[in-house]
Write a protein that binds this DNA or RNA. Structure first.
Lengths: 213, 213
DNA sequence: CAATAAAGGTGACTTAGGTCACCGATGAGT
DNA sequence: ACTCATCGGTGACCTAAGTCACCTTTATTG
């Protein structure tokens, strides 16, 4: 019953795993559901398992000393949290905060399995390396943006990324939300958005933004 | 002869590698020397080997579109370049620039070996994961600084990191160099340094800075 | 439907930090 | 000793972006 559910999640999002690996994951993994806005991972938390996302959407944030947040990237079904892998392997605490933005289901793999999986299953091994690589690059892109770009460029990049990642042309978000993700302030974002609207790049509405390019 | 040189480098900086692994590295690795200011890796370059640093000092930069540089972290003897590992595995191009700051020797390991090493040698496997983890955290710290901190805090952090990493209380660097690493401008750095000097934290000299805390 | 909260707009102001112009001090090479 | 490049100091100025105050519009709820 529960086994079949896990089976179908793996088949739809991790179909590239070899059959034996799937079997191990089905036997040892457990499903965990998160409601919207629930945290999957908190800064300073100790990891006992690594998480494969099988349903929903997760936002990863870095937290500043004074409690403000900085959005780094999304985790979607088929993704794993690189940080949870690294921390799990090393049994150290998490350095980021992960929050579900919609109801989310994670397949939790106990850390004790990590070493065996890496050694025994080629597809797992490549999946993990691929995950590291993608997140590493994602972080480098984040650094590019905040190190070299001004706020209007960062906003444009942010919006494009949202539209692309979420595969939509209409983004449900308030100006305040964006300001929070970019560690800026609502007024600044509002003003910059208005300029983008004047250039015909977006259409602004209450609680959502349309992409026009 | 050359074999013995590699042997001694490995023994002094990678003594934790298991004997069989050392043998493989000695048989398949080649030493490559870099003069000061030479690049080990350029943005966009394709990687055919992963590099273990056995001598010298390397600075890793992210490059902006307009050619300016942003310092991320040092590689020292005993370190490997996480990026070269990831890119090597995936056979993709490098995303960063690595420059020797003093004469440097790297032990080059052909990418073709990577998979075998990971599977066969536990100490290599842990070394690679440890490398990923450390660099990941280093990048997160970089993001913290540029996302949440003001220039004076970033400068203070930068200096402390230099003094700590280079294990010295007297740093050979010009104000312009620092400005370049932090992607700021010389005048700004000079002014902030002066304030630090007035607070008794550093002593400023031509071409070097002393740490007083 | 009145009350309230949330979202967004806008002008005025402040400030960190980037830029410009120019200076003097230091040190290396001829 | 003279020349020239590099390094660092400084005042004046500019601009992006953060902050404050206050407003209107829209949606929600009792």
């Amino acid at each position: 019953m529960k086994t079949e559910t896990i089976q179908s999640y793996i088949d739809s999002h991790f179909s590239f795993f070899e059959p034996d690996l799937k079997k191990v994951l089905i036997e040892n993994g457990t499903l965990k559901t998160f409601v919207a806005d629930e945290m999957l991972m908190q800064t300073g938390q100790n990891m006992r398992s690594t998480t494969l996302i099988v349903e929903g959407l997760v936002k990863l944030y870095r937290e500043g000393d004074d409690g403000n947040e900085f959005f780094m990237y999304y985790l979607q079904p088929g993704n794993a949290c690189a940080l949870s892998m690294i921390c799990a392997t090393k049994q150290e605490t998490s350095e980021v905060m992960a929050k579900a933005v919609e109801p989310t289901i994670g397949l939790m793999i106990p850390i004790s399995l990590m070493d065996t999986l890496m050694k025994e299953y080629k597809t797992w091994y490549y999946f993990v390396l691929e995950t590291y690589r993608n997140r590493f690059e994602e972080l480098l892109t984040v650094i590019d943006n905040i190190a070299f770009k001004s706020m209007d460029e960062r906003l444009a990049f942010y919006l494009e990324k949202q539209f692309k990642d979420l595969k939509t042309r209409s983004l449900s978000v308030t100006h305040g939300d964006i300001a929070n993700d970019l560690n800026s302030s609502r007024e600044v974002i509002s003003r910059l958005l208005k300029k983008m609207e004047q250039r015909g790049e977006v259409a602004l509405h209450r609680n959502y933004i349309q992409y026009l390019k």
